[in-house]
Nucleic acid binder design. Structure first.
Length: 674
RNA sequence: GCGCCCGUAGCUCAGUUGGAAAGAGCGUCUGCCUUCUAAGCAGAGGGUCGGGGGUUCGAAUCCCUCCGGGCGCGCCA
């Protein structure tokens, strides 16, 4: 609601200034620091003053006097050196916010609307998921929810690198360290906690390879077999990666995460996506064959150098390649094999529907929400598969260390003449999850003395270090369950379990979302397991409190519900006037809560615009906090003025609706009680 | 060496395109449960926004420079 009024104001100001002064200045608005300064302010007169060479305050006064009435705005004032302060019609805002909260969220997009693709999770299918993977998945999932809420058509993909070295290493573990037959591996893969078993095995393989470098040849052979897709190694890799993917889907399912499609690297290889992309790249001149120098024999891509300060050194000897080709990115090795960036370019051409090839598809797994996730296939698949791909915009949720290869993919699209797609390919970058030194020590990892003083340390997943996602979830669940059991001993077991589950997920998702993307999260059990302060459960608790009011009201009076419904109508019709409860200054605190509750649209818009789910997490917390203050100040059920009680009740449920919506976008549910 | 990110309260972090007196949580100290669940609320204390220049009517925010930290730059993925 706030955004709607703000948009209206900006539009009116822009129009007014254009008409009156025959000039255009950027019309920026902001929330003034104090309520006494109104709800929307604009400093545009400072800029206008420069253009017109007139004092800003005088201009502001002129505009305030001549501006036509804007719906929803009660009055305009001039403040400070020339600010325009606009004051909302409080009662109208409240009624409109209530109206909007009932059916919030955009309409379902048309089947042929432009598609936004979000790729996230993309965990190597060779071991259990850890906390760092969860940050990726939760960020991507939340962003997808936000896009859907804004009415975009969204397709969520999870890329599976089932033919890479990481899977090869685990195959090597089963063939050389254990050793296990194909059938034995098949049996292990069907048993629970296979991802944990591989976690440990992978760490052992890392050590095995480090002990004797010549063993890397073994790995190369396994990798080659897997890529070519034949032999026992390939079959074992298939068994392992498929089973691990199921483990991952189960783990992220606990957090309410699902996908539309799993795309596998195997198909990109087997269906020759690269061959098609290679032709395009060669034909367009996007890549060149280096004939001399250190990259001789490789097909390379020259990245547009962003800076002009590149000094054209003349150090290159006559027989050397011009230096551009020497420091270009290698796409095809001198052996003729394609690098991973090359495959990624092919994959992204497919994402945008620019490749002459497509995958086959088959249903793969029933997800937590009952939906079926599809997986790519090399053999003619289901005719009734949904139309995947053909995105107009792509977001890749990938950690920020991979910024460079992502740039190469964008440059590749651009070099092929797909400037629009290059612009619409966004690296949704985030920083990794590290551990606090204390946490690392708690887990038994040795850390160097100089690292012990740092705020965070990175641990090695290759060595089997890190916090496994399921372990963390189990701990959260157990902790929430203990608390729930103490508070609700009388409730049935199943209900207590469900409450504990909601709290555990709320705590974890909020913890991962409260940090902005560029922040390195220093993970610590103490913070992650907290249910107090700025946490998910704090927000859930505010919702529970509103539920509690209604429940208590019903307990005290069986007619509470019908009386409520009647009062609602009287408020909507204006029979009960809410303006008197909101008039300044006595009504300021209530108005402030309403204003915040009505600001969900603005915050969602900002979160999507900045690609920053943390904005919404913060909003949910702020609103919960404001509600808690209100809750302590106004005792609703004992309010003697019946009209005021009705109003306070309506306000409470408005807050609840907005909190539930915000939490839902964060992937967090609010239990009835907790 | 080149590129990207970061430096804000004791600790962990916000501060959405430059805007009106710097915020939150945790921790510390002090209060508040016979009234809608204290997973809560109120209050106290705590900051040269890494240092220094500059642009601007206005800078934590933009530019330069220095200091300190992280990451990336492979015929790995």
């Amino acid at each position: 609601m706030y955004k709607a009024v703000d948009d209206r104001i900006r539009k009116a100001l822009r129009h007014h200034i254009h008409e009156r002064y025959k000039t255009d200045v950027p019309v920026v608005t902001e929330r003034p620091p104090k309520l006494a300064m109104g709800e929307v302010a604009s400093p545009l007169c400072f800029e206008l003053a420069k253009r017109l060479k007139k004092p800003p305050r005088a201009l502001a006064q002129e505009i305030a006097n001549s501006l036509k009435r804007i719906p929803g705005v009660e009055r305009v004032e001039v403040a400070g050196g020339g600010y325009l302060n606009l004051f909302f019609d409080r009662a109208a805002f409240f009624l409109a916010a209530c109206e909007e909260a009932g059916h919030e969220g955009a309409a379902v997009p048309a089947p042929n609307a432009p598609k936004v693709m979000v790729e996230h999770t993309s965990i190597n299918p060779n071991k259990a998921a850890h906390i760092g993977h969860l940050r990726n998945a939760v960020l991507g999932d939340t962003f997808g929810r936000l896009l859907r809420y804004m009415g975009r058509r969204v397709e969520v993909q999870n890329y599976i690198d089932n033919t890479g070295v990481q899977v090869a290493d685990v195959v090597l573990g089963f063939t050389h360290l254990e050793p296990k037959s194909l059938d034995e591996v098949r049996a292990l893969a069907a048993a629970p906690k296979f991802d944990y078993l591989c976690w440990d095995l992978y760490a052992r393989v890392t050590q095995f390879l480090a002990d004797d470098k010549s063993r890397l040849d073994l790995r190369s052979q396994v990798l080659k077999d897997i890529e070519e897709g034949h032999g026992d190694s390939a079959e074992m890799a298939e068994i392992i990666s498929t089973a691990i993917v199921r483990c991952h889907l189960k783990t992220v399912g606990r957090l309410g995460i699902s996908y539309d499609l799993l795309t596998r690297e195997g198909e990109i290889l087997h269906l020759k996506f690269w061959d098609a992309a290679f032709e395009l790249l060669k034909k367009s001149g996007a890549i060149q064959l280096a004939t001399s120098g250190k990259n001789a024999g490789c097909w390379v891509m020259q990245l547009p150098s962003g800076s002009e300060k590149e000094v054209p050194e003349v150090e290159a000897a006559a027989d050397e390649e011009p230096s551009e080709l020497a420091d270009a990115k290698i796409i095809v090795r001198s052996t003729g094999t394609v690098t991973y960036v090359g495959k990624d370019i092919a994959y992204h051409l497919w994402k945008f529907g620019l490749l002459s090839r497509d995958f086959y598809y088959e249903p793969f797994y029933k997800q937590w929400d009952g939906s079926e996730v599809w997986i790519t296939s090399s053999v003619a698949g289901y005719a009734d598969a949904p139309a995947f791909g053909h995105a107009s915009q792509v977001f890749n949720v990938i950690d920020s260390r991979q910024a460079y290869p992502q740039q190469v993919v964008v440059a590749g699209l651009r070099a092929l003449g797909h400037a629009e797609q290059a612009d619409n390919l966004k690296h949704f970058a985030y920083n990794v999850v590290a551990l606090t030194p204390r946490c690392a020590q708690e887990l038994g990892y040795e850390i160097p003395a100089e690292d012990a003083k740092k705020p965070y340390v990175e641990v090695s997943g290759r060595k089997g270090q890190g916090v496994k996602a399921d372990d963390l979830l189990d701990r959260l669940q157990a902790s929430a369950r203990k608390e729930t059991d103490e508070r609700h001993a009388e409730s049935p077991e199943q209900e207590r379990e469900a409450i504990a589950n909601a709290i555990a997920i709320g705590a974890l998702r909020y913890f991962l979302l409260r940090f902005t993307r560029s922040t390195i999260i220093a993970f610590d059990f103490k913070d992650a397991l907290s249910f107090e302060g700025e946490t998910g459960p704090y927000v859930q608790y505010a919702v529970v409190r509103v539920n509690g009011i209604v429940r208590k009201g019903l307990e005290a009076d069986p007619n509470f519900g019908t009386a409520n419904a009647a009062n609602l109508k009287r408020i909507e019709s204006g029979e009960i006037s809410v303006a008197k409860f909101l008039a300044a200054p006595a009504g300021d605190d209530l108005w402030e809560l309403i204003l915040l509750a009505g600001s969900l649209d603005a915050r969602v818009d900002a979160a999507v615009g900045a690609q920053e789910p943390a904005f919404l997490a913060r909003y949910a917390f702020e609103l919960a906090q404001a509600f808690n203050v209100f809750y302590h100040k106004h005792h609703i059920l004992s309010e003697e003025d019946a009209e005021k009680r009705a109003f306070l009740l309506r306000l409470s449920s408005l807050v609840r609706e907005q909190l539930v919506t915000a939490l839902g976008l964060l992937g967090i549910s609010a239990p009835d009680k907790m």
